[in-house]
């Protein structure tokens, strides 16, 4: 079987992959969540329609999302170097992951908020709620489970993207798979990393679905 060195390397790979995926999801939401809220607010039938702001955010989201991640990764190397100090390793990979994830998250959040029943928003307005109160006490509350489901999908996608960053020395399991499986023809290590990625993905997806179902009071 695998020698001890390889096992340690794989364990470190798992750690780095989880680090990249979770941290980039988290920072992605710090940027994407407010962006999604603003998109929802400023859309033509939103709480505070604003054509200009909506168009700008809409444009940014579409531009970034239309660039394939691998190209974005390379395109952003100078920026990553400026932010992190280096362009390789797992911390550096978080930069393009976040930039790729934020507009995606913004869209997912926007879609979740759009699903909130207009009648409930009207009821809140009739109570005398301000837009801020409607966002925090109604929109985010009612869209809660939809947002959780979106976060689960996003995390899964970022897991895949973090592995893709292995091709340019991103670190983590993807990096190991590329270095050992592709350049050194060590198929066994490659298979192990793929299995590990599948297992991690399953855990994220199942955990996410369970948490979402737990908090959903609509059908229980």
């Amino acid at each position: 079987m695998l020698e001890q060195k390889a096992i340690i390397m794989l364990l470190e790979g798992i750690r780095d992959t989880l680090y990249m995926t979770l941290v980039s999801t988290l920072i992605g939401y710090v940027i994407g969540l407010p962006m999604g809220i603003v998109l929802n607010l400023t859309r033509p039938d939103g709480l505070k329609p604003n054509r200009i702001i909506y168009r700008i955010l809409d444009f940014i989201c579409n531009i970034i999302r239309s660039v394939p991640f691998l190209i974005l990764l390379i395109l952003l190397i100078p920026f990553t170097r400026a932010v992190v100090g280096q362009s390789y390793g797992s911390s550096a990979t978080i930069v393009p992951l976040v930039i790729c994830a934020a507009p995606y998250i913004a869209r997912v959040v926007e879609a979740s908020l759009n699903e909130v029943d207009a009648g409930v928003i009207e009821a809140a307005k009739a109570m005398g709620a301000s837009n801020i109160q409607i966002i925090f006490r109604v929109l985010l509350v009612e869209a809660k489970t939809s947002l959780m489901a979106g976060a689960t999908i996003t995390t899964g996608i970022l897991l895949g993207y973090s592995a893709m960053s292995g091709t340019v020395g991103g670190g983590g399991l993807g990096d190991i798979a590329v270095r050992y499986g592709y350049y050194r023809w060590q198929t066994d290590i490659m298979i192990v990393t793929v299995v590990l990625l599948i297992v991690i993905f399953q855990i994220i997806q199942n955990l996410g679905s369970k948490i979402t179902a737990f908090f959903d009071h609509r059908k229980k």
């Binding site: 029943d117 009739a126 109604v138 489970t145």
Partner: peptide, 20 residues
């Protein structure tokens, strides 16, 4: 908004928060 708090409203579709 303050005035609205002084005017209650109910609807055909009830419009309750489903998650609360």
């Amino acid at each position: 908004r303050k005035k609205r708090a002084n005017i209650g409203m109910i609807f055909q579709g009830f419009n309750l928060l489903e998650q609360k």
